[in-house]
Structure formats: C-alpha cells, structure tokens
Design a protein around this nucleic acid. Structure first.
Lengths: 224, 224
DNA sequence: GAGCCGTGTCACGGTCCTGTAACACTGGAC
DNA sequence: GTCCAGTGTTACAGGACCGTGACACGGCTC
C-alpha cells in the first residue's frame, strides 16, 4: 500500500488507519518520491492525493497507467474538490475509486477492500497445487499425496484462500474478512478453532505443519 | 473486441489497455459507427457505453440482441451510474456484465476474461456414458446397465446436465439456471426435491449413489 | 367431469457444522 | 525462575443444512 500525500497530517492519518487494518504501508510526499519507491517494490494499491505540488495527481496517475510495470496498480484518489467535473477527470485517468475529503477511516478501508476485492483476490476455479496438496475448486475436492481429504465448507474456503496466497501472513481480522466475508461479526478466536480443525483434517495425510502460526500476528501457509 | 464510447479519453483508455492485454480492438464513438463496423467483421465482445449520444446504449444492445447475426455477441456495459435500478436494466437488456466507473484496466480485462470463459459449452445431442449409465439426448432415453429408466422431463434435463459435467460441484442456483433456464424464480429447495426424484429413479438400477451431496455447497455427479 | 402425471412448495426430523466459552499450554520478557 | 499475553485444545449448545413425505395446483387424457 503506497500513500502519496503532501499534507503530513492527512498522510499520517491515512497511514495509521491502513496499518491498523493490517496493511503494510509506505508513504511519499510527492510524485517524485513515489516514483522512487515504486522503482523498488510494487504495492497492491496506491492512495493518491489529487492535488500534489509540482505535478498534479491525475498526471501522475496517467503516467502510472502508461507504463507496463505500474499499469495494473489500483489507484484511489483523495480530493477536496467535490465538483462533478473533477470526479469525471479523475475517472478518465483510470482511477479505481475516489474519496472526497473529509472522509472517515472506516470509509477509506471499506473502499480499499472493495477495490481489492473487485479485482484480484477473487478466488478462481483454477486448481491450486502446493506442497503435496492439491485443491480443486470446481470439483471441491482436496487431495494430500493422492489421498482424498474430507473438509467442511468453512475449512475448504479457508484452505483455498491460504493456498492461493502462500507464504503471506494474515491476521485474524483479514481471515474473517476473506473466508467468512467482511460483514460478519465473529470472535477472532473463532479463526483459531477453524485453523485447528483444518490442521486436524490435513494431518490425515501428514500435511498439518503446512499451516504455520506467526505469534502475535496470525497464520501463514508454507510452501513445501 | 469493439469499444463503443463517445468520450475520447475513456475510449482510448479502454482501447490501449485492451490492446496491451493482447486483444485486437476497434473503436466507435457512436452506435451508428459501431453498426458500420459490425457490418464488416464480428468481434467476440462489445464494450458498450451506457450513455451514448443520440441512441442510448441499452437500446443499441437490444438491437444487437434482436438480430440473428449479432445475437450471440458478449456485451459489457460501462456506466457512471451506480444505482441498482440501472444495473438491473442493464442486465435486462442482455448485457453479460457491466462495469461501474471508476474502474481500473485490470478490472476491465478481468471481467472480459470472465465473460469469455463463461461461454460454456452447450449441451449437445451426443450420447453420454458414465458409470453404467447411458443417456441419449436424441432419443431421450436413459438406460442403467441396459435396463431402461423412466424419467420426467425435468429429471432428464438435470441428469443430462450433471452427466455432462461429472465430478464438478454445482450449487442450487447454478442448477436452477442450467436446468430450468436463466431467469426462473423458484425456491432453491426445489432442486433438492428433484435431486431426490432423480435418485429414486436411478435406484431402480442401483445407480442412486452416483449423485453425491456436497454439504454446504451443492451436488456432484460421480464418475464410476 | 374424473383421474392421472409432473411439478413446486412446505413442514418435520435427523445429522452435521459452527461459534463460543472455558481451560491447558507455550513462548518470551524480566 | 515467574508471569502474562497469546495460542492450542476440548466440549457443548444452537442452528444450518439436507432428506423425506405430504400436499396443492395445473395440464392433460379419457
């Protein structure tokens, strides 16, 4: 997650809230600094101020869209202008969404979730194979070393999600959002129990150690 | 791929990204120009702006659907309106999907891929043979181990569909769409009852266990 | 009209799943 | 070593989910 915003107060406000929501955040106060960062690692999403010193935000967005490496980045505009015209121009530069100041942290994270969900994390019907496990969403079958595994609906969804994002650590809130849906209202410890049930099922073929606990953070599905 | 959009900026944004995704793209700024192009070559898919000058986009879509030559084109609507009502009308005019501005290039290509992939193979008249069962669509006869089975119309269509996609799990909504037709308005539990009737009929030759219940998901036709 | 067949819906009961609380345990800070 | 937050484990009540039988309705034949 990259936040590009010249106003320090707003930049920190956004960053703090994103971190709290479980995202890794980098900040930049100008388009130039943002470019430097982007030359290193690519984020999943860019929160971009409409009004940037020197170079306007939408010009920067067009630039991102014009380069192959950054073409597919999700972009959310933050703007103080509410006029329709500005929104339209924002759309023309290929933003995924926009926020009008003032906005609440809740709205920010909600929109980010919406944008991210709209695009990537849609679990597909493709077969996932990792570490001796094979999960087939279309037939809803899971095999560990050719032996079939019996999973409940929730266990299956969780394993599907984890296997689709190996090595990556998810906290309990994120798992609730991804596996149960983000409108649910459940205890975080519920995740623990389902992790256990999933591990139990996987242990039938000796694959129970594929799900790793990251103390203080959450869980991770290991490669091999 | 044909892009029909009157706003030059958005049109180019879409076209550039589609070309980058590997599609051949033609552009039109109005419905009239689009018709001229369609008189020449037929694309696989049309990206159509909801608001077109002169003729509304959905009117154009209806026109496409009404002509045999363009009836089967996939259509994706692009609209700035987010209201549910508009979405509904968009789908009623036969759109395969719609995009709400703002959207990102990645989202656009993802949806296009989804629509193209969704064009599932229709049920053919070929004889289907699986697990001792033989279903002949042309004669509308089903035999289990050479013994004839007596099925009602709905049971037959459902068995035909399930046997044509063995191992794959379908939920009740999908089965309603595939067996009854896209836009029926029936209780999902109705599927259960017909599954039962089908199982009863199949049990006459001992093949009732071929239809498997996948709890929390739907039903599956087992191989062998 | 009566009778039959195919169909959609409902209600009941059993089974399995699931969320939660309570308790046991672990790892790390000090 | 002690202590504590964080996690593993277990048990259980409630509920979701599905199979099943019954019933009403419409179309059809006679």
């Amino acid at each position: 997650m990259l936040v590009v915003e010249d106003e320090p107060a707003i930049r920190e406000l956004i960053a703090v809230n994103l971190r709290h929501a479980g995202y890794a955040v980098a900040c930049a106060h100008s388009a130039e600094e943002a470019e430097t960062i982007l030359n290193g690692a690519l984020p999943d999403l860019v929160v971009l101020d409409w009004m940037l010193p020197g170079q306007a935000g939408d010009a920067f967005a067009r630039k991102l869209r014009s380069q192959p490496r950054t073409r597919d980045l999700s972009i959310i505009f933050v703007t103080a202008r509410v006029e329709e015209r500005d929104k339209l121009v924002g759309l023309e530069s290929g933003a995924d969404d926009y926020l009008t100041k003032p906005f609440s942290p809740k709205e920010l994270t909600a929109r980010i979730k919406a944008v991210l969900r709209r695009r990537a994390p849609q679990l597909t019907d493709d077969v996932v194979r990792i570490g001796g496990l094979e999960l087939n969403p279309a037939t809803r079958r899971v095999t560990g070393d050719r032996k079939p595994l019996d999973l409940g609906p929730t266990e299956f969804r969780m394993l599907h999600f984890l296997m689709s994002h190996p090595e990556r650590v998810y906290n309990r809130t994120q798992l609730l959002d991804e596996v149960w849906g983000d409108h649910v209202f459940l205890e975080e410890r519920t995740v623990d129990v389902h992790i256990r049930r999933l591990r139990m099922a996987l242990s039938a073929t000796g694959h129970d150690e594929l799900i790793e606990t990251v103390r203080g953070t959450g869980y991770r599905f290991r490669r091999g």
